[in-house]
């Protein structure tokens, strides 16, 4: 019974994903269908058309095992071994610098706005 319920919820998530894909394709959006799907589901939840109990077991199950789905994607690396060999240093540099700047940028502006907001409302 519980499996059947999860299967139904999974179908609903898959339908919303397919709908997101279609919307992105037909509207020529330069954004992936899964992004349109998330926004769609978030809106449907807020409007009360879809309720948490219609999707949450399947969503929680998939998100708990989300890492599994990354493995087959990463197997594609088989074809890219040479890139790391050849461009490893530049890639490492780009990753390290850009990640550090992302942390500092996000952290600094969020902290600044939070303090600013706190002093306004207090």
């Amino acid at each position: 019974m519980k499996q059947l319920k999860i299967l139904g919820q999974l179908t609903l998530l898959a339908l919303i994903y397919l709908l997101g894909n279609q919307v992105a394709r037909l509207a020529h959006l330069p954004v992936p269908g899964n992004v349109v799907g998330i926004i769609l589901l978030y809106l449907l939840l807020n409007l009360g058309v879809v309720r948490l109990e219609h999707v949450q077991e399947a969503a929680d199950f998939l998100l708990r095992h989300l890492v599994f789905f990354f493995i087959p994607v990463a197997v594609d690396l088989m074809n890219w071994g040479g890139v790391f060999y050849r461009y490893g240093l530049a890639l490492a540099l780009a990753i390290v610098l850009s990640t550090a700047l992302t942390f500092l940028g996000t952290g600094a502006i969020a902290q600044w706005l939070e303090k600013d907001g706190a002093s306004c409302t207090d």
Partner: peptide, 27 residues
Amino acid sequence: YQSYVPGQRIMTWLLGPATVGLAVPLY
């Protein structure tokens, strides 16, 4: 690698509905 591709496609497709599920914690 080519022999792995059909199975890979099926598994990666499921990543779509799984990502849509991220709307649940967001909500």
